[in-house]
Amino acid sequence: MFSLRLPIPLVKTPPSSSSYSPYYLCPFHDPCQTRGLIVSKRGSATAKCHADVTLRHDRVSFAGESPDPFPAELAAEMMPKHVAVIMDGNGRWAKVKGLPPSAGHQAGVQSLRRMVRLCSSWGIKVLTVFAFSTDNWVRPKLEFDFLMRLFETTINSEVQAFKREGIQISVIGDSSKLPESLKRMIVSVEEDTKHNSRLQLIVALSYSGKYDVVQACKSVAKKVKDDHLHLDDINENIIEQELETNCTEFPYPDLLIRTSGELRVSNFLLWQLAYTELYFNQKLWPDFGKDEFVDALSSFQQRKRRYGGRHA
């Protein structure tokens, strides 16, 4: 079916005195049906040029102030644009030290601060961290409540530093079950930092990869039902526009780091990790420091990424 909406009003004139009475058509005001969306996907060359320009600018602007000079063993032009981290091992770190789990989470926050500073200094554009999974709701309520308060106090104490250092904060995940005060804080910090462009920190809170794909499919289905989209026009690009990582210019991580020695992606960015290089480290997250990060980046820079093709 093809549908045209014409800007022609139906004029209703009173019937004439003639013996032939005209018929009046009733107007049907259905919305126009869009058979195809014009989807432009940025070419990798364009993105690369943009990244190069930004990278050079960052180094010129911040090199003198950088507390962490660029490591000599790494090549600046081969740095990943997007790094994703599964911050695993806080609980075990606390346990081996004879401390409660809350101490492990607090130490984990220090590790995250260090990671943010390093990414900011070394020209990485996006850092996505898996803070809390929808699958973590089974954890004890005491630990859950502590985590929620930890998120709030951390955001509260860091928001000024984020604004000052050009860090944009985005939070993805199913926020419906988060405490109201935390939701308000998230809205506020996202608004306050939305114009920052040095580093985008994406915090996955109450997130899982399956949830993200399901909610994207729901959005697409609703558009089809409301006649904004046709079934035959659904493709990868349409799905990608609805994933929660549509908040960033670089939604696909180049490098995923998982700490604590586990070799799983644990329902993190499932769709987005299709061609990501995976790096697993034995250290528990609170012990993951600068040296470990340099090792991960060095490993990444030695990879030969193929994206489905053969080796050159």
């Binding site: 079916m1 014409l6 139906l10 107007p27 049907f28 005001h29």
Partner: peptide, 11 residues
């Protein structure tokens, strides 16, 4: 006014 064009596929 909306003008709709149908085809055999719509039946």
């Amino acid at each position: 006014m909306t003008l709709k064009f149908l085809s055999h596929a719509d039946g």
